[in-house]
């Protein structure tokens, strides 16, 4: 699949924002951010919301006809994209009310409940985003439960690192958050490795089942078009194997290995500098990961264009 930068930026950045807001939402209950004053909590929440907003704006650049984007709320019953849109819009008032409560009233029962509700929304939206891809039976590299799992984990990972950096730069205690981030780094790297292994197994339709000639070899003679088509541009994207392996290694190093070393204290005490580097590295790593998510996906329509299998 063609890796569109607007969509990659959207899923990574908005994912990070939802990650920040999820952790903040549960922080009053779990004590992830002890000693954060209402002011500080609200400002950190607004940073998360800003990330979400930047991502959502970028997502509209992917639409060929954005003036109809408002119509995307109508197919809530069947379409994951519609569900994502509905939840993303409902999220704003909810999140703002919660942050306002926190700011005006501090740590009350209402704040805790609203925070938990916001956190729930964050996960639901991340799952919806993942399901937009995972629902497609036509792309076996996406049609797996690992896809939404991955979207949730990487969103939370980036969120944890960003929140950690914000706490550290305000000299707030962050030992609990760092433990959470450590757990997330390890689990999300594992999930990613399982995913790479899983998509390496041959499966799904072949050129034979695509055309119905299952008892003989089939080769493409003539694709029938002499210039570009929508299919070539959208589905024909291919990267060579060696480059893919390098990019996988780079992405895992940047999103997992380096942050792991930085926040586990191997390079000395975990301060705001270490966390800043971890944030930048993980963001770049997840960006490469998301690029690969698209570039490695092979749509079944390629079978009609001569691929023997996807």
């Amino acid at each position: 699949m063609h890796p569109a930068l607007s969509v990659i930026f959207f899923t990574v950045t908005a994912g990070a924002g939802y990650g920040v807001l999820f952790l903040l939402g549960i922080s009053r209950l779990t004590g992830l951010t002890p000693e954060a004053s209402p002011d500080q909590a609200t400002v950190m929440g607004l940073v998360g919301l800003a990330l979400v907003t930047a991502g959502l704006i970028s997502s509209t650049f992917h639409l060929a006809n954005p003036k109809n984007a408002w119509r995307s709320f109508v197919r809530f019953r069947t379409s994951w994209l519609s569900r994502e849109a509905v939840f993303a819009v409902l999220f704003y008032p909810l999140c703002l009310i919660w942050l306002a409560c926190d700011w005006f009233m501090g740590n009350t029962a209402l704040t805790v409940v609203l925070g938990l509700l916001t956190a729930l929304f964050c996960v639901v939206i991340l799952v919806c985003t993942g399901m937009i891809y995972a629902q497609l039976k036509t792309i076996r590299q996406w049609h797996t439960a690992l896809t939404p799992v991955n979207f949730v984990l990487l969103g939370l990972l980036l969120g944890a690192l960003i929140l950690g950096f914000m706490l550290a730069s305000q000299n707030l205690p962050l030992s609990r958050l760092v433990s959470v981030a450590l757990g997330l780094v390890i689990i999300s790297a594992l999930a990613k490795v399982i995913y790479f292994y899983w998509i390496g197994q041959p499966a799904g339709p072949t050129i034979n089942t695509a055309l119905g000639f299952t008892r003989a070899t089939v080769r493409l003679l003539d694709v029938g078009n002499s210039s570009d088509t929508f299919h070539n541009k959208e589905f024909g994207y291919q990267v060579d194997k060696v480059k893919l392996i390098w990019l996988r290694a780079i992405s895992l190093t940047l999103m997992a290995v380096l942050p792991l070393l930085l926040i586990s204290g191997v390079f000395g005490p975990v301060g705001s500098i270490a966390l800043l580097i971890a944030v930048l590295s993980a963001y770049a790593g997840v960006f490469v990961e998301r690029w690969l998510f698209f570039a490695e996906a092979r749509h079944v329509v390629n079978l009609y264009h001569g691929f023997q299998r996807t």
């Binding site: 699949m1 992917h62 639409l63 060929a64 006809n65 954005p66 003036k67 109809n68 984007a69 119509r71 995307s72 379409s79 994209l81 937009i132 629902q135 497609l136 039976k137 036509t138 792309i139 929508f230 959208e234 749509h299």
Partner: peptide, 10 residues
């Protein structure tokens, strides 16, 4: 239609 391409992917 808003031109999101999702149907073409499906």
């Amino acid at each position: 239609c808003m031109g999101c391409n999702l149907c073409a992917w499906a």
